[in-house]
Write a protein that binds this DNA or RNA. Structure first.
Length: 203
DNA sequence: TTCCGGATGCGCT
DNA sequence: GCGCATCCGGAAA
């Protein structure tokens, strides 16, 4: 992990919607006792704090779980839901609880490890969803409150910005949140096979 | 397409 | 304390 150069703190000081786009193509790296695994971020969603009905921090809700969202940009916000761990990048200034959810990555290193962690499923299903990528990379609640500039969980420079196109659309899985449901705060690398599948909703 | 695991938080009793 | 909902995924039906 020594030869990985984490993006500097300054990277995280851009506005949340900008950060959500800037994170696309960056390399997410996790080291565990089993070994190192990494992938390029190909899908993100922005959660815009107190005014965003879909955010855990809506209305400045401040609990043990959301506490880190009020902390320094670049902090790791992990939470569990329905048995899965999801990972977010805290953004905005201290006291403004905004974050970017990492929804999908493209596997780069540690593929044999990922295959085992993902129970032998085909490669395109290792990391094409927020709960899947944490399992494949070995991201857990132990990462909560750490910072993406320090091991064992890093965000590093990846693809050059001009090498791929960015698509935009509404977020996934937040159907019961009023108008916030339709905000186009999901970003992904166009035509990338590792972007998560849109969950069919049954209205 | 339907069901449900199981941590977290909330609103109510 | 209890019931319910949730930024999901896998297996059953």
């Amino acid at each position: 992990m020594e030869h990985y150069q984490a993006l500097p703190q300054a990277f995280y000081s851009q506005p949340t919607l900008e950060l959500a786009k800037s994170l696309l193509g960056c390399l997410l790296v996790k080291e565990t006792e089993e070994g190192l695994a990494s992938g390029y971020i190909v899908e993100t969603e922005a959660y815009m704090g107190p005014e965003d009905r879909a955010a855990h921090s809506f209305g400045n809700r401040r609990t043990k779980r959301t506490e880190i969202m009020f902390g320094q940009a670049g902090s790791v916000y992990t939470y569990t839901m329905h048995t899965h761990t999801l990972v977010n990048v805290v953004s905005s200034e201290i006291g403004r609880p905004e974050a970017v959810l990492i929804r999908a990555v493209e596997p780069l290193e540690g593929k044999s490890l990922m295959e085992i962690r993902r129970a032998g499923r085909p490669q395109f299903e290792w990391t094409n969803g927020p709960g899947k990528l944490t399992k494949a990379l070995g991201i857990t609640m132990d990462d909560y409150g750490n910072h993406f500039t320090s091991p064992p969980l890093l965000i590093c420079e990846g693809w050059t910005k001009s090498s791929f196109a960015i698509s935009t659309g509404p977020r996934i899985g937040i159907d019961n949140t009023g108008e916030a449901r339709d905000y186009p705060w999901r970003f992904w690398a166009s035509n990338n096979p590792y972007v998560s599948k849109i969950r069919r909703k049954m209205n």
